[in-house]
């Protein structure tokens, strides 16, 4: 089975978050808890369900990732963009002014 992680958006501000090893939520993809089988995935989604009820996050789902020697890597265009937490547009081109780097 491919490795999966659970991701969602935080309710209050919409920021992308990942379910961590201690079943908390992190803004860093690299802190995701790797889910290696069905049982782990199910348990993680249940934990996410509790967070939904507690109004912490919205719309949790499982995303497939690659496990590499350097750690987990998102393996789709969508999840790569989410993991980077920014659009891919380079700030020096066009009007993307990205206050976020400051």
């Amino acid at each position: 089975m491919t490795v999966q992680v659970v991701t969602a958006n935080r309710l209050r501000d919409g920021v992308i978050v990942w379910l961590t090893a201690d079943l908390g939520w992190s803004e860093e993809f690299t802190e995701s808890r790797p889910l290696r089988d069905e049982a782990e995935a199910k348990a993680a989604l249940e934990a996410a369900g509790v967070a939904v009820k507690a109004r912490l996050v919205v719309g949790p789902y499982l995303a497939e990732v690659d496990e590499t020697p350097e750690g987990l890597k998102p393996n789709s265009a969508r999840e790569r963009i989410r993991a980077s937490r920014l659009p891919t547009i380079t700030p020096d081109q066009g009007s993307w002014t990205g206050r976020i780097e400051g």
Partner: peptide
Amino acid sequence: EDEFRPLRLQNGLYLQLHAY
């Protein structure tokens, strides 16, 4: 969220990839 979603949408508020 299921009940809130149509209410926020009718006020123009989406939940997108990175944020609202």
